[in-house]
């Protein structure tokens, strides 16, 4: 049966498929820039969706900056130093991230580490990975970051390099993003979801009705860390540059959590909305403020940080005044009317 929902999806999907064309028509000279923005949004939306797999069940990890980092670095290092194609490198990276996730997760879940402790422990994990990346500077370029070696003209199936062709890149990340949504829906409809929901509310009660809480949490951790590693790898392949602060570390972890909270943790499109919101906000502030001549005359060099300043301020205000996320709060307002 075809419902309204199906129609909405079909329309949305068609619009997304036609988006590059639309962008070319609307911004004939700057279409590369706008495509870039959309691609960024989709990559991060995928990563945020991956995080929300755990986040929505009360597992608020600050460790996902480590998974994206592992995904990006393992893929690039295998390619640069062993000549292993990302077709193998990416699965290996996902495997490494999953193993790391399980390794950190297992004791956490067995010992029932939750709340602040879980957040701070996973934060330590992020920091550990970031320090390892910097420490291995002979391979990783340390805090300066590194690049995947370009293969030919930088457009290669074998090397999974597609950055020069923005339209192609767009369709690739669109597919990635859709896969992310499909995984979300699959989890949402599975029995595990009920088990995890129960466990996040009352672990003892869940255990007493026969739910193996630790195993359920490990399953979702595996999915979530693999997704974030995949997202990190795709990010590296598209950006053709990876740095310990841009794809790993506490800043990335915090941004992930922020975006999802801002977008709304409970709904399918929440993380995506968070990505749109935070990326457009950051980019808008960056372009708007740094591009403005009056401002740069007024503030000089300090205009460079004004966007981050306002970004931070807005995040603080959002959490204080819209604790349920933008979508959640708007939906609530709407219902009240």
């Amino acid at each position: 049966m075809i419902t309204q929902k199906h129609i909405a999806w079909a329309v949305g999907l068609t619009a997304l498929l036609l988006l590059p064309l639309l962008i070319r028509l609307m911004f004939p000279d700057t279409d590369r820039y706008y495509l870039h923005l959309v691609i960024q949004i989709l990559i991060w939306a995928f990563i945020y969706t991956g995080w929300s797999m755990m986040g929505r069940f009360g597992l608020t990890s600050l460790g996902h900056g480590a998974f994206t980092g592992i995904g990006a670095y393992v893929t690039v290092l295998l390619w640069n130093f062993a000549g292993i194609t990302p077709w193998i490198g990416i699965p290996v990276a996902m495997l490494v991230a999953t193993l790391a996730g399980l390794l950190v997760g297992y004791p956490c879940f067995r010992m029932r580490i939750t709340g602040h402790y879980f957040a701070l422990l996973t934060l330590a994990f992020t920091e550990f990975v970031r320090l390892c990346i910097i420490g291995l500077r002979d391979w990783t370029g340390g805090s300066l970051g590194t690049q995947p070696t370009r293969y030919g003209d930088g457009l290669s199936f074998y090397a999974v390099q597609f950055e020069p062709n923005r339209v192609l890149a767009y369709y690739i990340v669109l597919a990635v993003w859709l896969i992310g949504l499909m995984i979300w829906v699959k989890v949402d409809r599975s029995m595990d979801r009920y088990a995890l929901d129960a466990a996040s509310q009352d672990e003892d009660a869940a255990a007493s009705v026969g739910i193996n809480v630790t195993r359920e949490k490990l399953k979702i951790t595996a999915v979530s860390s693999a997704m974030c590693a995949f997202g990190g790898a795709i990010y590296g392949q598209y950006q053709m540059y990876i740095g310990p602060e841009t794809i790993a570390g506490l800043g990335v972890s915090l941004n992930i959590v922020f975006a999802v909270i801002a977008g709304g943790i409970w709904s399918l499109m929440g993380p995506t909305f968070g990505a749109v919101f935070t990326q457009v906000l950051a980019e808008g502030l960056r372009v708007g403020l740094r591009g403005s001549e009056t401002l740069s005359k007024l503030l000089g060099q300090s205009a460079l940080a004004l966007d981050t300043f306002i970004y931070g301020l807005l995040l603080v205000l959002f959490i204080i005044y819209m604790p349920k996320g933008v979508i959640g709060t708007l939906a609530e307002r709407f219902r009240q009317k």
């Binding site: 608020t60 602040h116 957040a119 915090l254 959590v257 922020f258 909270i261 981050t308 300043f309 970004y311 931070g312 301020l313 807005l314 995040l315 603080v316 959490i319 204080i320």
Partner: peptide
């Protein structure tokens, strides 16, 4: 946790 995280960026 996040609200002070936002403050981290801001400061």
């Amino acid at each position: 946790l996040l609200v002070t995280g936002g403050l981290l960026f801001l400061l």
